[in-house]
């Protein structure tokens, strides 16, 4: 049986909203894109990002709403922010 996801109940929002996560382990490193997370608002995105991407003791982490990213080379296509 195919699992049916109730978006509002399970994820807290009617439509998918994503946040891109950037982090670095030390001040010598550049901020690097480490992944993305789905959340209906910034508070839940912050907590989910912090708890899900906890495989490193990050010195710095920040999130950016995917909708705020303006594509340049990928304009008009299905934009994907790639994890380095």
């Amino acid at each position: 049986m195919k699992k049916v996801i109730d978006r509002r109940l399970e994820l807290g929002g009617d439509k998918p909203e994503f946040y891109e996560i950037f982090a670095r382990r030390s001040s010598a490193e550049a901020l690097t894109h480490i992944g993305s997370i789905e959340a209906p608002n910034a508070e839940l995105a912050e907590a989910r990002a912090w708890f899900v991407y906890d495989h490193e003791p990050w010195k710095e982490m920040c999130i950016v709403p995917t909708s705020a990213i303006i594509p340049i080379t990928e304009r008009g296509s299905d934009v994907k922010v790639k994890v380095v």
């Binding site: 508070e43 907590a47 912090w50």
Partner: peptide, 15 residues
């Protein structure tokens, strides 16, 4: 982050 988690869910549910 614990407070952020529940605050986020409150905002989502309150919609």
């Amino acid at each position: 982050f614990h407070v952020s988690y529940s605050t986020g869910w409150i905002k989502a549910l309150n919609k």
